[in-house]
Simulated scan of single mutants.
Amino acid sequence: MTLGTQKILSPEEIAVRAGEQLSFLHLPEPGVFAERALRLRALAEGHAMRDFLLFVAEVAEAQHRALSRPLAVPLPSAADVAAAAHAGEPLLPADGPMPWPRAAVWRESLRELLADLARHVAEGPARATALLLAQASDEHLETQAGRLRSGVMLGLDLAGAPLIAAGLQLHWVRLVQQTAAAHAGGPVVPFGRIDDPTACPCCGSPPVASVERLGAEGARYLACGLCATQWHYVRIKCARCQSTKGISLQSLVAADGGDADTRAVVQAECCGECGHYLKLMHPARDNGLEPLADDLASLTLDLLVSEAGLQRHGQNLLLLFGEADEAPPPGQGH
């Protein structure tokens, strides 16, 4: 495989193709984790990362079972909604000081998720890690969650990190869904545009990838890797530095030299100004596409674009680059 470059549309062409009736926000659907699991299992067939993709599919299925069970979480008040909207900030910041994002219920939910996962996976390192993490202290879970969210590799338990991430994803999807339902029809819409267009309007996280949504040709949405919300963002603008200069699309070129630019399901949108890239995905070329799953399965594209000197911008909490600099405390990691 090698890289190929595609000509991109001008802002005017994108506006014409997308039309004027675009929805700014798409909140996570109840079946978000089930769809992710199905896609991961489909992508795993014949894939070099088959075992990992199948394990993440098991995790997604456990997340779906957990999300299907009623569990109330602390929610923001109408005053909180109004304050966030006035400040132009996300209502449920993943790293903010507000009380509801990482309330104690997320740890309880994580432990239930881990116990359920352990019942569905075979004996081995993954099951042992899930059981061990389920017994970890509240302090350990919070410390690991904080390191994972901030990207601090020092002391991060790489074996347990994807499971911590799964618990955080589950909690924030619940938060977004229940907040939207609780404040539907209220005086202020709970989720809308915020001052930083590159961050998730719900939780403030960076995107995992971008998606050209079906039914909106030429319109690109950024997809949150934490709460699975998608929000509209102009396609020729860098999702990191917001520059419109030096933007190019890179694709994996098939060994047969075919026109990969017009058939590639996943491409890299590269910025020559800041030297970063974010994947752009095309559901019209494969309607089973799911942003987080397809990001995991397209690691080859990451490697090739990185060799060209660009840095990854997309944040996938289930995909960690590098190694931990320090082992976790004894008995609290795998």
Score class of each variant (00 low, 15 high):
C224A: 10
L303K: 10
D116G: 10
G160N: 07
I8K: 07
P11F: 11
D80R: 08
A44Q: 06
E290Y: 03
S23F: 11
H120Y: 04
D138W: 05
H183C: 08
H64G: 11
L163M: 06
R285G: 09
Q6A: 11
R69H: 12
P197Q: 06
A34E: 08
L114M: 04
R235E: 11
G309W: 14
A128L: 04
L170T: 00
I164F: 04
R263V: 06
Y221F: 12
H232F: 14
L131W: 07
A254C: 04
H120Q: 14
H86M: 11
V32W: 00
P329S: 15
A145W: 03
S210N: 06
L304Y: 10
L27S: 01
L280G: 09
D195I: 00
R107M: 15
R240T: 08
A130M: 05
P283I: 10
G151T: 04
E307N: 12
A122Y: 01
L289A: 10
G309E: 12
E58D: 15
E58N: 11
A216F: 11
E45K: 10
A118I: 02
L148N: 04
A239H: 03
G160Y: 00
L113C: 01
R312S: 07
G275I: 08
L303G: 03
A228Q: 09
T5R: 15
C203W: 01
K279L: 07
Q250I: 04
L132F: 00
G322A: 09
S23T: 09
P76E: 01
E20A: 15
S23M: 12
E323H: 11
P74W: 07
A260H: 07
V211C: 06
M1R: 14
A161N: 10
R235H: 07
A180D: 06
E89I: 02
C227L: 02
G192E: 04
C271F: 06
V59S: 10
A255E: 15
A264N: 12
A182S: 12
A136G: 12
L226T: 02
R149V: 15
F321V: 15
G151W: 05
G204T: 06
A82L: 03
V266D: 01
C227H: 02
D95A: 14
T179P: 03
Q177H: 06
D261E: 15
A297T: 01
M49V: 00
T2G: 10
L91C: 07
A42F: 03
H86G: 13
Q267I: 04
P76D: 01
A94L: 12
V173I: 07
P11R: 13
L38E: 12
T129G: 15
L304D: 01
G204R: 01
